[in-house]
Design a protein around this nucleic acid. Structure first.
Length: 153
DNA sequence: GCCAACGTTGGC
DNA sequence: GCCAACGTTGGC
């Protein structure tokens, strides 16, 4: 399966993946139920487009791969974490995390407005008005369209 | 920094 | 179960 995950690059960017290519990075802190459900649907070796948001250069930055499927997000139990959730119980964790590893960084970032201008990406939640979903599925044809954009620059 | 759109909370 | 108030997201 294919996915798109949003991240603020100051928090976790494609360069963080690229600088530690052999290290699994935990994708934690997702605190939205719809996004969480998509996280839980990931299977081993799924590919993930890494999208940089809330920053100067907004768009697709590269690709990562799922190396560990959903497990309880440890940050929900850590009172020192900004992601701490006191209402989540150990015996029934509310939030999930996955582990990702670096695959590639695009030679040039694919900007959001370019994604918006493609008629083939209209179904993608990312480009829909008001959408705040941070973890979303990508259809195979959408994946191909976005990869082609990444290669041609 | 602004603000529209959205999700969550909590009183009723 | 409704819905107003509030907090958050995220592009601009």
């Amino acid at each position: 399966m294919y996915w798109l995950y949003k991240t603020e690059p100051e928090e976790c960017s494609i360069d963080d993946f690229a600088s530690t290519p052999d290290k699994a990075i935990i994708w934690e802190g997702v605190r939205n139920y719809q996004a969480r459900n998509f996280l839980r649907a990931a299977t081993l070796d799924d590919l993930v487009l890494i999208y940089h948001s809330s920053c100067k250069l907004i768009g697709l930055a590269g690709i990562a791969r799922v190396v560990k499927t959903a497990y309880p997000d440890p940050s929900q139990f850590n009172p020192g974490s900004i992601y701490f959730d006191g209402k989540s119980k150990t015996e029934q964790p509310r939030w999930s995390a996955v582990d990702l590893v670096f695959v590639e960084k695009f030679p040039a970032l694919v900007p959001l407005d370019k994604l918006k201008r493609s008629s083939k990406l209209e179904q993608l939640a990312l480009v829909q008005k008001g959408s705040r979903l941070s973890v979303m599925p990508v259809q195979p044809d959408e994946w191909q369209v976005m990869l082609a954009m990444a290669k041609q620059e």
